[in-house]
Amino acid sequence: MRQSTAWLIRGLAVAIMSTLLNSGCAQAQTVSSVCDDSAFLAAQRTFENGGGREDLPVHVCGRVVAVSSRAKHTRSGWHGYFYVDVGSGVSIRIVSDLDEMNAPEWPWVAKGDQAEIVGRYYYDAPRRQGIDWTHHGTGRHWGMPGYVVVNGTKYQ
């Protein structure tokens, strides 16, 4: 009886943790310590082919191909936007929460700069995708801090 009770309690604990991790209440996110554009491109292809839609932690790098010269105010504050070429003819939109980042006045990135980004890849549709949570903060539904490195200078 005692052994079956222990197994029942262990099974319940595993089920509760699984539910918490999958519900967004507690997320343990990790990302490669080095830039991994190939993993990003594979995830993007999966999403574009109808695969999963969950947000993913990513670590990408490449050359900046476009910059929005003006910051935009949204319901969650001021944001700066730029695009990075991650290879294979793909550029991805990078969203920087300027209210949260320790960075100079926008724009602090320019076309041609080399950039490295850690953040959350979101995919809503082929023309509505990008990488956000590129700052040091975390939230209830995103537990991994991000950053942007431009020509060797780190902004978070």
Rank of each mutant, 00 (worst) to 15 (best):
D132P: 13
M101C: 02
G146W: 02
S96L: 07
D124Y: 02
L56S: 08
G87F: 01
D97N: 08
W142Y: 05
V90Y: 03
S69A: 14
Y83F: 09
A125R: 08
Y147M: 14
V84R: 01
V149T: 14
D132T: 08
V60E: 07
L56A: 13
G119Y: 07
A103T: 09
S38P: 05
Q3D: 14
K72H: 06
A6Y: 06
A110C: 09
W133C: 06
V148L: 13
Y147W: 14
V14Q: 01
T138E: 12
S96Y: 04
S88G: 13
S69K: 10
H79R: 14
A43H: 13
W78S: 10
V65A: 07
V148F: 06
T19G: 12
T138Q: 12
I9D: 10
V58W: 00
V67W: 03
S69C: 00
Q3L: 11
G137K: 15
V149L: 07
I131P: 00
V150L: 07
G62M: 04
S33D: 11
I131N: 07
L12W: 04
M17P: 06
P107D: 04
A26W: 12
V118C: 04
G143N: 12
A125D: 15
G62R: 02
S76C: 01
H135Y: 05
A6M: 11
V150G: 11
V64A: 03
Y147T: 03
G112N: 10
Q44S: 04
A103F: 01
G77E: 03
R140D: 13
D113Y: 01
I16H: 04
V86K: 00
I131Q: 08
T46S: 14
R120K: 15
M17I: 14
W7N: 13
N49G: 15
S69Q: 15
R70K: 11
T134E: 04
S38E: 12
S38L: 06
G112F: 04
C61T: 00
G87Y: 00
V67K: 07
S38H: 07
H136W: 03
V109I: 14
A103Y: 06
K111Y: 06
S76V: 06
L56R: 10
S69R: 10
R93H: 09
I9P: 00
S96Q: 11
V84S: 01
